[in-house]
Amino acid sequence: MAKVTGLEGVVAGETDIGLVDGEKGYLVYRGYWAKELAVSKSYEEVAYLLWNRRLPEAEELVLLKQEMAAARTIPEYLKQMIDLLPPSIPMMLVLQSAVAALGDKDNATWPPTLKQAIRLTSVLPTIIAYRYRKVNNLPEVEPLAELGHAANYLYMLTGSIPEEAHVQALSAYQILCMEHGMNASTFASRVVLSTESDICAAVCGAIGAMKGPLHGGAPSEVISMLEEIGTMDRAEPWIRKVLENRGKIMGFGHRIYKTKDPRAEALMIATEAMIGKDPSFDLAIHVEHTAIRLLEEYKPGRRLFTNVEFYAAAILKALQLDPDIFTPTFTAGRIVGWTSHILEQAESNRIFRPQSVYTGPMPETEAETV
């Protein structure tokens, strides 16, 4: 029997939420191309789609936006708890603690509800912004109900109404973060929920998985590369030197996608309005074009294209977000996918109980009959 580690290639369940096909470069949300949704729909519209299996009517979208805006506020007890956590505690552990603390009698029910999913999705960006500003000795910025989900997140982080181009870029990025099949964090959420635990506990499990650098690692290595390159005229000699020394160009190629990463394609379109307005973003675009050309020269036929990490780095750097909140920002997008899977798991639940192969020693004597 062939040894299988990490459950690679093992089917753990069925879902109608999303499809990831790396060979063909497909990413589908509920029958729609994710890359098209990212450039044509708002965060709230795509969240509605994942939660409800269809896009919202105009009135339904208005109601969802109102419900999400009303659910953004952090309870006072939660602020006090966050304030007591030392600044050295990583943001992802703060999120895990805060979500656990939200698991009161209204949020610890079985089965989980859509209202609970909306509440957690809405409040997570507020928790991130509150903690970020607190540890940086900045005054709290209360959420604005009139702003959309992505715009309000940027507003709470910076204290200023964001530019529309920045809102569009962040919204597209977080839409493309929402769902990506049975990845480690999504699987973790479904395993926890399958025990008939509550939605907060399941999301805490997902956050714990996302915190690991093998899964939720932020695109900080791409940013380090861009900062080391520094200027457009240094891009080609820097990349050539790395390739000649058999080094890796960060942000190119993907473990799953063997063709163009559809998320990167969408972000390229969503960020067109930022070109020419931010030197760091313009540098990233120049590095992308140069790297693709040189990768084909040095590694012909390898199909190494820009991945979502590269564009995420370019966007988050242009938005001047602190690297410490890159993974939390990714998490604030992915929670829609997590909660969609949690709700789907509850619809026909069966506890996950995989088998293992014992490789330890056996007792020297035969078992006695008792």
Rank of each mutant, 00 (worst) to 15 (best):
R302P: 02
R302N: 11
R302H: 12
R303T: 12
R303M: 11
R303C: 10
L304P: 03
L304K: 05
F305I: 11
F305A: 06
F305Y: 15
F305W: 15
F305V: 09
T306A: 15
T306Q: 12
N307L: 09
N307K: 07
N307S: 10
V308N: 09
V308H: 00
V308G: 04
E309I: 07
E309H: 05
E309G: 09
E309Y: 08
F310S: 04
F310V: 08
F310H: 09
F310Q: 13
F310P: 08
F310L: 10
Y311S: 09
A312E: 08
A312T: 14
A313K: 07
A313I: 02
A314V: 05
A314S: 10
A314P: 09
A314T: 12
A314Q: 07
I315R: 03
I315V: 13
I315L: 04
I315P: 01
I315A: 07
I315H: 04
I315S: 02
L316H: 01
L316T: 00
L316D: 00
L316A: 07
K317F: 03
K317D: 09
K317G: 00
A318W: 05
A318D: 04
A318I: 09
A318R: 13
A318S: 15
L319T: 07
L319V: 07
L319E: 09
L319P: 04
Q320L: 04
Q320H: 11
Q320K: 14
L321A: 07
L321F: 04
L321N: 01
P323M: 05
P323V: 04
P323E: 03
D324E: 15
D324F: 08
I325A: 02
I325P: 01
I325V: 13
I325R: 00
I325W: 07
F326K: 06
F326P: 01
T327W: 01
T327E: 05
P328K: 04
P328H: 05
P328M: 01
P328S: 06
P328G: 06
T329H: 02
T329K: 03
F330M: 06
F330W: 07
T331C: 11
A332C: 10
A332F: 03
A332N: 10
A332Q: 02
G333V: 00
G333S: 03
G333C: 07
G333H: 02
R334V: 01
R334G: 06
R334K: 10
I335R: 06
I335H: 05
I335L: 12
I335Q: 04
V336H: 02
V336Q: 07
V336T: 15
V336K: 06
V336R: 00
G337Y: 06
G337V: 09
W338F: 11
T339F: 01
S340H: 11
S340L: 09
S340P: 08
H341I: 09
H341W: 10
H341Y: 14
I342E: 06
I342N: 13
L343C: 11
L343R: 02
E344N: 10
E344F: 10
Q345N: 06
Q345I: 08
A346I: 07
A346E: 09
E347D: 09
E347W: 05
E347K: 14
E347Y: 03
E347G: 03
S348C: 08
S348R: 12
R350S: 11
R350Y: 13
I351L: 14
I351T: 13
I351Y: 08
F352H: 14
F352P: 00
F352Y: 15
P354D: 11
P354Y: 10
Q355T: 15
Q355H: 14
Q355D: 14
S356C: 12
S356K: 14
S356R: 15
S356M: 13
